[in-house]
Design a protein around this nucleic acid. Structure first.
Lengths: 124, 124
DNA sequence: ACGCTGTTTTGATATCTGTCAAGGTAGAGG
DNA sequence: CCTCTACCTTGACAGATATCAAAACAGCGT
């Protein structure tokens, strides 16, 4: 975690919530969680996430050429994912490696659990 | 579905994908899925979603006063959720009722399933 | 020390987004 | 028909975002 320089999302604070479909979220919870969804709400970042999540770790040098975008732009998107708390980065020598933070994934997955939803939304 | 006037997200097309952590997403899949996350990436919309998902259905007249925002603004956010395919609306007399589309929820939840992830991202 | 490669930061710009006020549509009830 | 309420659309605008070029930073190899 060489580059955790920023006030990244606190996943412990996020981890408090029951599934979306169980109880309305208060404003504070929503303000904590929305940035995670927002970070995934861009096609480039979604692909970056899936590339990183598909392997134990991924070098920026392998991510950048997969897109028709400049290096700085990829770096920007990676920063958004980092600041959302979805990935971690580590510099090892010349290269920087990215890894997913699985607890963030689990958290979002739990929010989207619909199994305990009220009748109409589980049958509609 | 009185107001399904628009080229709403096709959930069948979205439903194709394996979890993020299993295989990189291609650009086309990402373009289909990202708008769903994006729609949830705003605190107001996240709260609207959770309010709607917590009950069988919800009247706009009960959603609007829960926020410190104008009617048009709430209407705008509901439209974003509708066009993302996350909710359905139906007018019954004077009022408009919103319901979640549970298949969209299930889809996003499946994408975030991390149980089949490669070693480093399930242990880090 | 110098230059080379990989990555991030800065600065600039075009586009997108959230918000409200004003105006429009839809149904209910005289 | 008229009016009232509920909801949506339009238009305008401030602030955020995606993008790139240029510049800065970090290691490596010479």
């Amino acid at each position: 975690m060489s580059k955790q320089e920023l006030p990244v999302v606190d996943l412990n604070a996020v981890a408090c919530c029951s599934p979306l479909a169980v109880r309305p979220m208060d404003a504070e919870q929503a303000a904590l969680v929305a940035p995670l969804f927002k970070a995934l709400g861009d096609p480039i970042r979604l692909r970056l996430m899936s590339m990183i999540a598909s392997v134990p770790e991924m070098c920026v040098c392998d991510l950048t050429p997969a897109f028709d975008l400049s290096g700085p732009t990829i770096s920007h998107h990676l920063k958004v994912l980092r600041e959302a708390g979805l990935v971690d980065s580590e510099r090892r020598g010349t290269w920087v490696w990215y890894r997913v933070k699985p607890e963030a994934f689990r958290q979002l997955g739990a929010l989207l659990d619909i199994s305990a939803a009220p009748a109409a939304s589980s049958t509609a």
